[in-house]
């Protein structure tokens, strides 16, 4: 595992305009999110509910020195959101490819598991719609990423983006509405 000092340094370099630092950060964050997700699932820690917000916050706690300034923090969360999205998309795509015709019987028990298989297709549709949204309103697409893929609360998003909660509410409300129309259109 990368130590928090080096991640913090990379974040600061990125904040200073060094785009290579960002490229080096991406795989570190990606791997860490994946590792945390799997660890949460496996026997060693079976009492864990799995939600993006928990993973992202844990990743922050493990990877980043808590003393970083708010801009680096904002960068980190934005990156986490992006990596979480990529992680899920990659997995959904590979699962979809592997699973064609395997006829897995659907089970339901807990709310964690509801409609799991269908969710792969849904998450791919969300990804496509989000990509489309970014072509004409990238800010809203980023906010949606933060809200859903990083699971940030309103307050945290406000801290991270510097936007007031009323602005956030307005932007996200429209973005969500647009995404839902896009999802309905593609369904």
């Amino acid at each position: 595992m990368p130590d928090s000092e080096s991640i913090t340094v990379l974040l600061q370099q990125w904040g200073g305009g060094d785009s290579q630092a960002r490229d080096r950060l991406m795989p570190l964050v990606y791997d860490e999110l994946q590792r945390l997700a799997r660890r949460a699932w496996s026997g060693e820690n079976a009492g864990h509910t799995l939600q993006p917000t928990a993973l992202v916050h844990e990743a922050f706690a493990r990877l980043v020195d808590a003393q970083v300034d708010w801009q680096d923090r904002a960068h980190f969360y934005a990156l986490c959101a992006r990596m979480m999205r990529r992680l899920l998309i990659n997995h959904a795509e590979s699962r979809n490819a592997a699973k064609r015709g395997s006829g897995v019987a659907p089970l339901t028990w807990d709310d964690d598991l509801a409609a799991q298989d269908a969710s792969f297709d849904d998450v791919l549709s969300i990804d496509q719609a989000l990509t489309q949204l970014a072509t004409f309103d990238s800010r809203k697409a980023e906010l949606i990423e933060l809200q859903y893929f990083a699971g940030l609360s309103f307050r945290e998003m406000s801290d991270v983006t510097g936007l007031s909660s009323s602005t956030l509410d307005r932007e996200l409300r429209l973005a969500r509405a647009w995404l839902k129309t896009a999802l309905s259109a593609s369904a």
């Binding site: 799995l50 899920l88 964690d112 969710s119």
Partner: peptide, 24 residues
């Protein structure tokens, strides 16, 4: 958009959480 605004947002976050579970 107004019609969509009235719809439940669960269709946005539920698939994300479910596929995270599946991935893990």
């Amino acid at each position: 958009l107004l019609a969509a605004d009235d719809q439940d947002d669960a269709r946005l976050n539920a698939p994300i959480e479910a596929s995270l579970q599946a991935m893990a």
